[in-house]
Lab assay of single mutants.
Amino acid sequence: DNLVIALHSYEPSHDGDLGFEKGEQLRILEQSGEWWKAQSLTTGQEGFIPFNFVAKA
C-alpha cells in the first residue's frame, strides 16, 4: 500500500495543503513533483504534502 510516516510535523501554508504531526501515517493518493496528494489515516482529511517530510512506512 502507499503508506508513509511523517518525519516532521507540517503546518499548511496554502489552501489545499494537508497539515500533519510527526509520526502520523498517511496514504499517498498521487505522486507528482515535490507535492504529493495524501490522506491522513488519523483525520481522514486529504490534501497536498511536501514529499520530503515523509518516508515509506
Rank of each mutant, 00 (worst) to 15 (best):
residue 47 G to R: 01
residue 55 A to D: 10
residue 27 R to T: 06
residue 8 H to G: 05
residue 42 T to E: 11
residue 52 N to R: 12
residue 35 W to D: 03
residue 38 A to P: 01
residue 15 D to V: 13
residue 18 L to S: 03
residue 47 G to I: 03
residue 52 N to K: 09
residue 28 I to L: 10
residue 49 I to T: 00
residue 53 F to G: 04
residue 45 Q to D: 10
residue 40 S to Y: 01
residue 33 G to N: 05
residue 16 G to C: 12
residue 12 P to V: 06
residue 4 V to Y: 15
residue 36 W to R: 04
residue 48 F to V: 08
residue 4 V to C: 07
residue 5 I to M: 06
residue 3 L to F: 11
residue 15 D to C: 12
residue 49 I to P: 01
residue 44 G to W: 07
residue 8 H to S: 09
residue 3 L to M: 10
residue 35 W to E: 05
residue 2 N to L: 14
residue 35 W to Y: 10
residue 3 L to N: 04
residue 51 F to T: 06
residue 8 H to C: 15
residue 42 T to Q: 12
residue 55 A to P: 04
residue 45 Q to A: 11
residue 45 Q to F: 09
residue 2 N to C: 13
residue 3 L to Q: 06
residue 46 E to F: 13
residue 11 E to H: 15
residue 10 Y to P: 01
residue 30 E to Y: 10
residue 9 S to V: 05
residue 51 F to K: 15
residue 50 P to T: 07
residue 38 A to T: 02
residue 23 G to S: 03
residue 49 I to Q: 00
residue 18 L to A: 01
residue 1 D to I: 11
residue 14 H to G: 13
residue 27 R to K: 10
residue 11 E to L: 13
residue 4 V to W: 15
residue 5 I to R: 04
residue 2 N to G: 09
residue 1 D to R: 07
residue 5 I to D: 01
residue 52 N to A: 10
residue 40 S to V: 03
residue 42 T to L: 13
residue 14 H to Q: 12
residue 21 E to C: 13
residue 37 K to I: 11
residue 26 L to F: 07
residue 49 I to Y: 02
residue 50 P to V: 05
residue 43 T to K: 02
residue 13 S to Y: 11
residue 35 W to V: 09
residue 22 K to P: 03
residue 3 L to E: 04
residue 42 T to H: 10
residue 13 S to E: 14
residue 33 G to R: 03
residue 35 W to A: 06
residue 12 P to K: 08
residue 7 L to F: 06
residue 28 I to G: 02
residue 53 F to L: 13
residue 23 G to V: 00
residue 46 E to H: 08
residue 11 E to Y: 15
residue 9 S to A: 11
residue 3 L to Y: 10
residue 23 G to Y: 05
residue 44 G to C: 10
residue 48 F to M: 12
residue 15 D to S: 12
residue 2 N to T: 11
residue 37 K to W: 15
residue 29 L to R: 03
residue 43 T to A: 01
residue 7 L to I: 12
residue 41 L to G: 03
residue 55 A to H: 10
residue 27 R to L: 14
residue 20 F to M: 05
residue 24 E to W: 03
residue 13 S to N: 10
residue 23 G to P: 02
residue 53 F to E: 05
residue 26 L to C: 08
residue 31 Q to V: 08
residue 37 K to E: 03
residue 44 G to K: 07
residue 38 A to N: 00
residue 46 E to T: 15
residue 26 L to S: 00
residue 48 F to P: 00
residue 44 G to P: 01
residue 54 V to C: 07
residue 24 E to N: 02
residue 57 A to V: 15
residue 1 D to K: 08
residue 52 N to Y: 12
residue 19 G to A: 11
residue 19 G to W: 06
residue 37 K to R: 14
residue 55 A to F: 09
residue 39 Q to M: 11
residue 31 Q to K: 12
residue 57 A to S: 10
residue 25 Q to A: 10
residue 30 E to H: 08
residue 38 A to R: 02
residue 32 S to R: 12
residue 17 D to L: 13
residue 53 F to R: 05
residue 25 Q to K: 12
residue 29 L to D: 04
residue 9 S to Y: 06
residue 54 V to Y: 03
residue 41 L to S: 03
residue 42 T to C: 09
residue 29 L to H: 03
residue 31 Q to Y: 13
residue 13 S to C: 14
residue 27 R to W: 11
residue 18 L to D: 02
residue 38 A to L: 08
residue 4 V to D: 01
residue 46 E to V: 15
residue 51 F to C: 14
residue 25 Q to D: 03
residue 12 P to G: 09
residue 54 V to F: 07
residue 44 G to S: 05
residue 57 A to I: 15
residue 10 Y to L: 06
